[in-house]
Design a protein around this nucleic acid. Structure first.
Lengths: 349, 349
DNA sequence: AAATTCCCTGCATACGTTTGCAAGGGAGTC
DNA sequence: GACTCCCTTGCAAACGTATGCAGGGAATTT
């Protein structure tokens, strides 16, 4: 049987209340505290979070729901969350829903009941589903934004612009975009930003836009939707080669790597004949052949920030976030230029 | 406030005990059960695991400790565990220890107290540390074996032999082995098996060995230890090229991919001039360039099996494993031949 | 020196759930 | 028709911890 607070109390010759107070920082005389601490140490006592949570109403446990742990993107987020949780001595339940939205909602309900709050990576559920299933006070969305809900997301628009502007500066005029799943929130963000490049120049002059880059003279060719996987990229390779595009912005790094693979198999040199830019900057991106130019998105940091946001709300530490800016945090993105992007081929070549 | 069993009882017009029994499968009349179920459904009731665990002594929660979630090998294990846990409606705490052994032991103590049992991926702690920190009845080691403790591991010896025999059959006579960290249990297993190839032929005749393959005529060149990472592989590339080896067995796939990367950078064609074999068969292995021949090790399956072993012991379902064969499970491995291994170059070439 | 204050400690209760025990009622059997 | 048996249900206790409340003792004040 595990040692309980009673065992410690007996060993120290005091009551259970004193033990509890000694360990949680209540008002106890220094001498008693020392005795209790010694006894607890000697017996290897660890408080039972379960029982503690019952009375305090807080468990010190948090939930994280991801569609696929095998996907490095989510693995990175999980690592960030875990690291932060360890620092505050909290536990984190991780549920892999295998890309199944209904499992996601189910996990949300269960975890919501058994934790102090849950971090949710849900690219595919609808806004309405999320608003209905989640407690807006104890749920924070990661890499997704829904009005009125707590969220940590990345500045996808800025990242997308950087990628296109990079390719444009290299002389590319026809750029393919490999779209991901239609339901994906992040995918919709990318498309919305790319649509700017189709607009007339005067649209860029609206005063609220602080985006001064020139968006003319480049044409975006949309392909897909493709599966957001290596296989999806392989498939897209032939599509892209059949077009007039000289550069490709992939939905994510996995797709970009599949694309690279297919291009290599067809003997197309990268970046000499085709530039490839990925999205996310997962660790594999640096290992690809050639190393992948990609839009870096904070992952571990987003996970840590998400937990932090939760802690401030339920943890009592500091005042809870109130303004929209505090409730819906946007983290910066940045283009990482590696070897897969280069000058556009000359028309004569 | 969350809905409790009391709320459901009021709504259904019965006592809390009846609600409890209706939901956990006690003896209740079909009519009342239906009423209770309906009320529970309507109120969105989820039992509080915390409180349940307090009385039953079982929480339905399990712990998983891994050194690095970012490493696809452990991500795969975590996914397997999560999937199995979801099937039995259990929760799983995942702790990423960031390769820190002391954090591992600390997590083991905390999780051991707050869960029904913990799954431990600890390649680097010593046997003694593990035996002291872990409860042998509720801890199962994953991909590691310690006498007397529950474990799920892979048949590393068989996998290693398959890899070497494969290369030997392709005509390779001098094979480099890239050793991983010295403390690694799996690494020690690989080395022990490779040592067989250095022994005199008569050693293979000992009756208890069911291994009939010819181990003569091949020389193992050991390099390392190298870090078990992509970077470690890059580093090893130059070492291998400076030797007379015509084939390489890497410590794991990450190392193999780094090696591939370096070989490509130095213009060495694979497998024409150098064959490369990895270990683990992580999902990236199929995406490398060229696709990697590698020893497939069960990962998700190992995770699921580990949880299964735990469930049989503490879950009450079935009789707990008693024989050594049941307590220390070994899963099969198998070589997956892809494009990175081929015929040995002719000496004239 | 007596009274007041404050610090420390123990007792008892509460948290949400499960479960042993006992009571009630309906049906089946003699 | 009465008795027995079993099924169903409610009451109450228990799990391990935290905390309000009150009591006791020492220290400080008048």
């Amino acid at each position: 049987m595990r040692t309980t607070v009673h065992d410690v109390a007996d060993a120290a010759g005091v009551s259970v209340s004193t033990v509890s107070r000694a360990l949680t920082g209540g008002s106890v005389s220094p001498a008693t505290r020392a005795t209790v601490m010694a006894a607890a140490e000697r017996l290897g006592y660890r408080p039972n979070r379960t029982a503690r949570g019952l009375i305090t109403g807080r468990t010190g446990n948090y939930g994280l729901i991801v569609p696929d742990l095998q996907n490095p993107f989510f693995a990175d987020i999980a690592k960030g969350v875990s690291a932060r949780a360890r620092a505050v001595d909290g536990g984190v339940f991780i549920t892999d829903t295998d890309e199944d939205v209904s499992a996601e909602l189910e996990a949300l309900a269960t975890l919501g009941r058994n934790t102090d709050g849950v971090l949710l990576c849900s690219p595919r559920a609808t806004d309405a589903e999320l608003k209905e299933a989640a407690d807006p006070e104890t749920t924070v969305l990661v890499h997704r934004q829904v009005p009125g809900m707590l969220s940590i997301s990345a500045d996808i628009a800025a990242g997308t612009r950087q990628a296109i502007d990079h390719l444009r500066a290299l002389g590319h005029r026809r750029i393919a975009f490999l779209a991901g799943p239609d339901e994906s929130w992040a995918g919709a963000q990318r498309l919305a930003t790319l649509a700017e490049y189709d607009k007339k120049p005067e649209y860029d002059e609206k005063p609220e836009s602080n985006d001064k880059t020139d968006k003319t003279g480049v044409e975006i060719l949309r392909f897909g939707s493709v599966a957001p996987t290596f296989e999806g990229g392989v498939l897209a390779g032939d599509l892209v080669l059949a077009s007039t595009a000289t550069a490709v912005l992939a939905y994510n790094d996995l797709v970009a790597m599949g694309l690279l693979h297919r291009l290599a198999a067809r003997g197309v040199p990268v970046p000499e004949r085709m530039s490839v830019v990925g999205y996310d900057d997962i660790s594999l991106a640096a290992m690809s052949h050639p190393p992948l130019t990609t839009v870096a998105v904070p992952k571990g940091r987003a996970g840590a920030a998400a937990l932090e946001l939760l802690l401030r709300r339920v943890g009592g530490a500091g005042k809870p976030a109130t303004t929209v800016r505090e409730r819906e945090v946007t983290l910066p993105t940045g283009l990482v230029v590696r070897a897969s992007s280069g000058l556009a081929p000359t028309t004569s070549g």
